[in-house]
Every structure is written in structure tokens, then in C-alpha cells.
């Protein structure tokens, strides 16, 4: 056939993605919850993406795995960290990207890259899930709202209630007591988004952020956080149409640049 098709797969702590890449761009992709069996979800994700791309598995020349579960993908030819992959993916979508902010399920990262898309430095949150997707999930539950609605609703507030703790456990009880004090939920949401953003901002400031910034990972779907980041960085932030698949896209790009696997 002579088709030049490559794939990337990103097994994150909360969600997993696969991207099928042809010569002219993305042919298909899939996003699923990781759940308890990363190997199975890797398989399912891959099959779904292949089906959507209308590509047979045999036609894929090579596969790169990334993300937290990258070492558990038996059919991958190579594994590369999500740090390097997010940089690559973001650089592909927005070639002027010099800084990537990636907030995923359990990690937040700030990555700086050069004009070729290679990582020059990175910072990563520590042990706790403060200010990540998991954190937002817990807060959404405490605020009795859907995770997907947090962003939009927070934009309805004129100001945010300051949140002092970023520890998931402490912040949850703080949110609950703020609700009990009768604070508006939208304002609490906005406060949470501002707190998360300023945490990322501080992590980023240390790395000497350069223009342009691209925001990846599931949390980039939250417009409230995008807005708050733009205010802090005093510049617009690129958000891909599908921010969750940037890591898998980067992985596929690495697969493509390495060429077909040796068999």
C-alpha cells in the first residue's frame, strides 16, 4: 500500500488517548477513561482510533506510547515521557509555542521548548494532586456541579473568593465551609480557578516563560482557568481544539520522525 501511518498512545492517570497520524495530519483519535486496567484501555483506545481513521492495524508503521502508563502498552515500539510528547504535539499545532502548560489528571507541568520543539526545561508538581484534574473533580463534587460546567459557571462571577489551601483535602473542607458561609458558588469556582492558575503561574515564572503559551491536557477545557491564566501571564494562551490528545499526538509525531520499526 505504501501508506505512511503512525500512531501515538497516551495512557494518563485519569484518561487515555490514541492518535493515528498520516502524512497530512491526524486521521483519527480516541479518548477514554483509563480505569483500573491500563492495558485493556490501551487496546480499546487504539482500536477505536483505528476504526475512526479507517485504517487497518497492520498499516501502522510504528507506535509510540507516552503518559503515566506508557510502560504498560505491550504493542508500543517505544516509550517517551509525556513531557517530551506534549512539547512536540504543542509545537506541531502551534509552531510558535515556546511554553507548554499541561494540566492532566494528577500532574501539572510547565515545559519550555526551543524552536524545534525540543524540551529545554520543565517543572512538575510534587506528590500531591493540588490543582490538577483530580482536584477539580473533587471540588466539582463539593460544589454539586458537573466538572464540565465549572469553567463556564465561574465566568459568571465578577470576582473570586480567595482560596487559601491548595491541598485537595484542605481545599475541599474550605470550599464546604465557604458554601456554609453563604458565598456564591460561582465565586468559589472562580476563586478555585484563580488559585490553580496562580500556582501554575508561579511554577512557570521560575522557568522564564516565553511567548507563545499553549495549554494542553484535560484541564485546558476549563475556560475559567484559561481566562485566569491569560490574565496572569498577560498574553493570550493557545488552546487546541482537543487539548487532551496533544500528548498522544506528540507520541505519534515521534513515531513518524523515527520512521518504520525495524522488523
Amino acid at each position: 500500500m505504501g501508506k505512511r501511518i503512525y500512531a501515538g498512545i497516551d495512557i494518563g492517570s485519569l484518561s487515555s488517548e490514541a492518535v493515528i497520524l498520516g502524512e497530512n495530519g491526524i486521521l483519527g483519535y480516541s479518548v477514554r477513561n483509563t480505569g483500573a486496567d491500563p492495558q485493556r484501555v490501551a487496546q480499546e483506545c487504539m482500536e477505536e482510533a483505528l476504526a475512526r481513521a479507517n485504517v487497518a492495524k497492520e498499516d501502522v508503521l510504528s507506535i509510540v506510547a507516552t503518559g503515566y502508563g506508557r510502560i504498560r502498552v505491550p504493542f508500543a515500539d517505544r516509550e517517551i515521557t509525556e513531557i517530551t510528547c506534549h512539547a512536540k504535539g504543542a509545537h506541531f499545532l502551534f509552531p510558535e509555542t515556546r511554553t507548554v502548560i499541561d494540566i492532566g489528571g494528577q500532574d501539572s507541568k510547565v515545559i519550555t521548548l526551543d524552536e524545534r520543539g525540543a524540551v529545554t526545561d520543565f517543572a512538575m508538581n510534587d506528590r500531591c494532586a493540588a490543582g490538577t484534574g483530580r482536584f477539580l473533580e473533587v471540588m466539582a463534587t463539593a460544589l454539586e456541579t458537573k466538572l464540565s460546567e465549572l469553567g463556564q459557571r465561574s465566568l459568571e462571577a465578577k470576582k473570586g473568593v480567595p482560596i487559601s489551601s491548595m491541598c485537595t483535602v484542605f481545599a475541599e473542607s474550605e470550599v464546604i465551609s465557604l458554601i456554609a458561609e453563604g458565598k456564591r458558588r460561582e465565586e468559589i469556582m472562580r476563586g478555585l480557578h484563580e488559585a490553580i492558575s496562580s500556582r501554575v503561574y508561579r511554577m512557570a515564572k521560575k522557568l522564564r516563560v516565553k511567548k507563545e503559551i499553549t495549554f494542553t491536557g484535560g484541564v485546558a477545557k476549563n475556560q475559567g482557568i484559561v481566562k485566569a491564566l491569560e490574565v496572569l501571564f498577560k498574553m493570550p494562551v493557545n488552546v487546541p481544539d482537543e487539548p487532551q490528545i496533544v500528548g498522544a499526538l506528540g507520541a505519534a509525531l515521534y513515531a513518524r520522525s523515527a520512521g518504520p520499526r525495524a522488523r
Binding site: 517543572a123 500556582r199 508561579r202 515564572k205 522557568l207
Partner: peptide, 11 residues
């Protein structure tokens, strides 16, 4: 304050 010089000192 919650400004904690993140990145300049270990958490």
C-alpha cells in the same frame, strides 16, 4: 500569603 516562592525553594 499563599505566595510561596514555588520553584525557588523546595516545597
Amino acid at each position: 500569603s499563599s505566595e510561596k516562592a514555588d520553584g525557588y525553594l523546595d516545597p
